[in-house]
Design a protein around this nucleic acid. Sequence first.
DNA 1: TTGCCGATTACCT
DNA 2: GGTAATCGGCAAC
Length: 199
Amino acid sequence: MSKKLSSTFYQNDTAIVAQNLLGKKLIRVLPNGKILSGIIVEVEAYLGIKDKACHTYAGKKTRRTQTMFMRGGHSYVYMIYGMYNCFNVVTRDEGVPEAVLIRALEPIDGIDEMKKFRNTTKLHNLCSGPGKLCDALKIDRNLDKHSLTQSPLWIEDIGIQVPNREIIKKPRIGVDYAGSHARWPLRFYIKNNPYISKV
DNA sequence: TTGCCGATTACCT
DNA sequence: GGTAATCGGCAAC
């Protein structure tokens, strides 16, 4: 039994939402109707104006970051390094620019399609990184500002409850420029899961 | 308008 | 271990 997460799920403390997203299923419907999906196994929280690692640190509002100021429950997709996309879920209320970066999935539906998009056959290499999973699920900036309460992109509760003792908390990846904030334990992943991005 | 650089990845030694 | 790829965002000029 699975149920689509409503917008109220996202309008909550960002680090809590991040941990609650572990074990949930991300579902993407392609324009041709094919369904791709995976279970979220790794995330990172970005805490807005007080977080030096966050795009909206000190309230910075630009064309790119205005998405993060939307009401919780929208997608925030941006391009990085000129060739990869990163998929985030906006949290909290309108005007509070925080989000959760989805870093890795355990592939479930449409695996053959994902292998094609990723040009690899290794299951554990399909969605084990923020750029990789966007390629695998064909998520790009066309899906920025999308409401996650509807097709073609949403998240479902499929009844998996990840016990707190199995949630590993570590510093975030690739944010050394944030000084001491880089060491905040805001990266969360499922213990011993083979599909996470890095050890 | 210019120039630096990034919430990454793949491929090389 | 190291680094090239590749381009939009952003701030400064």
